[in-house]
Nucleic acid binder design. Sequence first.
DNA 1: GATGAATGAGTATTCATTCAT
DNA 2: TATGAATGAATACTCATTCAT
Lengths: 233, 233, 233, 233
Amino acid sequence: MSASVSGKKNKPRERVEAREQTILSAATAVFTTSGVDGATMAEIARRAQIAEGTLYLYHKNKQDLLAVVVERFWADLTEGALSAVNTEEPVMAQLQQLAAYHLTELINQSDLVGLTYRARLRHGEPEYQLPKIREYVRVFDRIVERGIDRGELKADLVLWQCRDVFFGTLEHSARTLRLRDAGFDASIIQQLINMLKIYQVEDQATTALTSDNEKILARLSSIENQLAEIRSS
Amino acid sequence: MSASVSGKKNKPRERVEAREQTILSAATAVFTTSGVDGATMAEIARRAQIAEGTLYLYHKNKQDLLAVVVERFWADLTEGALSAVNTEEPVMAQLQQLAAYHLTELINQSDLVGLTYRARLRHGEPEYQLPKIREYVRVFDRIVERGIDRGELKADLVLWQCRDVFFGTLEHSARTLRLRDAGFDASIIQQLINMLKIYQVEDQATTALTSDNEKILARLSSIENQLAEIRSS
Amino acid sequence: MSASVSGKKNKPRERVEAREQTILSAATAVFTTSGVDGATMAEIARRAQIAEGTLYLYHKNKQDLLAVVVERFWADLTEGALSAVNTEEPVMAQLQQLAAYHLTELINQSDLVGLTYRARLRHGEPEYQLPKIREYVRVFDRIVERGIDRGELKADLVLWQCRDVFFGTLEHSARTLRLRDAGFDASIIQQLINMLKIYQVEDQATTALTSDNEKILARLSSIENQLAEIRSS
Amino acid sequence: MSASVSGKKNKPRERVEAREQTILSAATAVFTTSGVDGATMAEIARRAQIAEGTLYLYHKNKQDLLAVVVERFWADLTEGALSAVNTEEPVMAQLQQLAAYHLTELINQSDLVGLTYRARLRHGEPEYQLPKIREYVRVFDRIVERGIDRGELKADLVLWQCRDVFFGTLEHSARTLRLRDAGFDASIIQQLINMLKIYQVEDQATTALTSDNEKILARLSSIENQLAEIRSS
DNA sequence: GATGAATGAGTATTCATTCAT
DNA sequence: TATGAATGAATACTCATTCAT
């Protein structure tokens, strides 16, 4: 309370860290509750129980604070995703785990997803890819890459196309589920996984067909040879 | 009522109609250029070359004007989509046409898609499905329904799941293409269409192949058997 | 309904007169309901079922319209006051009648009294006595003058002081009665009349007594003196 | 808390207090000069030499500021009234002192009286008795109550009727004096005091007359007796 | 006279940001 | 570091008034 109390000096970093977290939590709450425009720095400061001016010691301005809030959301999401995925299992199983996790979070934290759009608008650039989102996407990328390495996925798949299908479908699902006031729905995930099977190495599905054809061709050649022999005989 | 005769009745209506269009164009330009918050009613009025107050004769307030701008965008999109799709062709072709059209427009008019999110925020409801968006989605729905009727698509597909995959993938693609400063890319559409083939009735595509193969294999077995007989004879 | 129907042309003055009354009634209603600032010319026009522009054919501007509304109120009040007072009766009775009428109207039409203050503010002058108010006050003045002529009231009373007591007391009463949500109260009028009796010619009430007493005392002194003389003789 | 020592604790409070007074003075000046509607927050801020936004740190909005201005006026009036009245003197003298003070102030500060009407309009209620006005009226009430206690005024008088006569007459006088561009006029106060004498306990005024009569009757009896004596002698 | 669409001046209020302490 | 009082720019919206028809 007074100017100097011993024993409090030695962990200023911790204190700063804690205050930073308090600020972010307060900001997150206010932003999600009131929206970007409805949120005021005064309200955020009040919730964080600090002075308005102090906010500016931690964040340059409102836009910056928003960006950090959103980044923290995606960072947390990344962490959660890593826990949700069991890298031991087949990649399709991993993708299913990630999809389920992603959809769940998108539905539950739709406000923060909405904020993401606002945080992107920076400077003059209309869109800007937040670093933490990039990291989150990396979780998906690594599963796919792993799949290729393990020979479970086709090596010639186009990663960004996979991402578009995967994240696009899930985001759209989350939005429509919210619109219908419905919660998590496993069926869309199953659907998605089924579609992603076109990226699987052929020995199931179509590949089966291909190998069938090869067998057929082989047998046909064999037959033709035999027929040729017979004829020449 | 007035001093002059017929032929003037529709003049003022035309004038009003023209002015409405002018306003919407001006508003669209300002909203997309400056963003929802950056846009000012004064600027919109200036662009439309009318007085500020006049704006309020046509639209209750800024939020309303935004909503109308966005609605017009989707209405126009619907119109364009209907033209882009040839209902005579197979549904997969139609879907491809719609996908190409959708992706193109999304890339070119990304700003308006962004505005859509803001226009949704209405009253107290966090999200609200704009009627014109619903209509746009109907274009897709009708193609799919047609496909089912014609026996081209499985009757047991879940429409909203198809929509999520279709629109979700395209929207995500549009966004990432813009981020990469890339333009329209046909490959993602091909990818998408391939995936949607799981909805196709099996007797074309893979199924066709499968049954064909089975017939071939059957005939092969038959031939091989004959050959064996010949040989053994 | 159509442009020209015969028989309607010949009485344009009546039509104008009727419209003027419609406007004033509409304006009065809107002004009293919404207050001077809350009232809009649009609303008044709507109530009078005429176009906004038409209002300006009858009244220069809003302030003018307000003034006319207020003036009409006082003119009506004057008319009512003249009916309420029976000039045959003693002036104190007439004043009581006028007081009762005034208090009643002030309570019932308090809104219009409030508007009066706003109507007074004109040009640069902070206050301005509306002509119709002057006329209304004349009703009181004439009763008092009549009283003086008839020898019922002292000729040396100061008219404006009487007015201040009379109207001041009643207006204050009306205001406080409204504040207490009370209606007309006869007691205050009785009180007022009692006080006004100091203006009555002395030969009634106390004054009569006083002068009588003085005469008596004088005569008594005279008699006592005579008695003293007689005694001393 | 701050770098410096004691003696500064009350500095900011003083500063705030001073600023509050500056604001109120500025607001009073602008409101009385330009009227409620003519006054702008910008002008008030300029006069107070503070930023517009600062006004809102001290007063919620314009209406609130107006209310405080008016309240301060009545509070000051109360203070002045208390000084103007000498409670040692007879109540009629005190009432005369209060009347003189009230009339003077009403004439000099007529603008603020006018503002009072506007400050009353609050919320949805058409009229609202401001607390400070109530306090001011209490000054009058206490004089009257004191008069009753001292036996100078009749115990059965109706307080609110006295108030109506007292304040009503003075307010009306002030208004008419202003209209006539006249200043303070003692005669109306004398008039008012005379009227209030009907509230006095009878042993002065009329009561005096009664006792006169008794004396007269006594003396008459004495004379008649003397005459009878003379006659019989 | 009547209309009502168009005008545009006018302002209270908010709130991100700063800076003296 | 922390504060929070002070700032002042920035803007949606209203409505009295006008004028072409």
